[in-house]
Design a protein around this nucleic acid. Sequence first.
DNA 1: TATTGTTATACTCTATAACTATA
DNA 2: TATAGTTATAGAGTATAACAATA
Lengths: 152, 152
Amino acid sequence: MPTPLEACAREVLDVMPLVMRTVRAEMRRHRAPGLTVPHFRALAFLGNNAGASLSEVAEHVGLQLPSMSTLIDGLVTRGLVSRAPSATDRRRVTLNLTPSGQATLATSRRHSQDKLAARLASLSATEQATIMQAMQALRVAFTPEPESAQPG
Amino acid sequence: MPTPLEACAREVLDVMPLVMRTVRAEMRRHRAPGLTVPHFRALAFLGNNAGASLSEVAEHVGLQLPSMSTLIDGLVTRGLVSRAPSATDRRRVTLNLTPSGQATLATSRRHSQDKLAARLASLSATEQATIMQAMQALRVAFTPEPESAQPG
DNA sequence: TATTGTTATACTCTATAACTATA
DNA sequence: TATAGTTATAGAGTATAACAATA
């Protein structure tokens, strides 16, 4: 007989991959500029944290530095992100969304959001509110603790 | 100003990758026999659906048939899954967990569950209950229907 | 001819290791 | 010496295409 906490963990473990698979499949089907979930999350982070460094994005998205370097490289090549040396510390890079990046983010987010919303629309308003609350609680529990650098 | 439904979709889109990244990282760290999330989900499905065919597992996990064939191949090689021709239709394959597979599933599930539970323990009992309810609602909304929305 | 599954092949994503540049 | 980032290289994981076997 599992405790409520155990049951909750198991349910999360069971259901989240199910949801993410749908999201991923939809992103792939849409395939605007081949935006994967990590691409998307990097763009979203830069949308909220203009001028962030590579390390900050990497930590937030959960990739190693070389992987994020490559990922950002692709976004720079595609003209979605600008990359420049920091004025105060020339080891660092300053990352920003270009106008095109902002537009792409908005479009892609809208698309994924709409597809997700279409699914969620089959649920009651109460259930939707419950999901909203659950996500907010999970965000708190799973936001990585800043070890060295904290974005403004 | 987004509607509640839109806000909910956006929150899901934002938070779920955050959670799944932690789960994945933990699985990788544990690295029992290199069980990935899809491996795990395939084992879990077979645990609940003994004798399932390859197509059934593939549909549930959300992989293409060749990918699932390879994945199952690895599980068979590792002695976690048995694979035999179906008695009634020899094109089909009958998949089952071996005792070792059952044990591995239990151990891995317990491990991931424990790690997840440790995170969730920082939340209140009310929040945990909310998450539980949210997952149950999401499960309903995202369980793939056997409809022919997925052509072959 | 249609369905189930496997094999062959290639591509994407991410990691580790080695390196450069700056502090 | 330590930190930020890049480049080189390798290895998982998954997809598409071609194939084999059965219905």
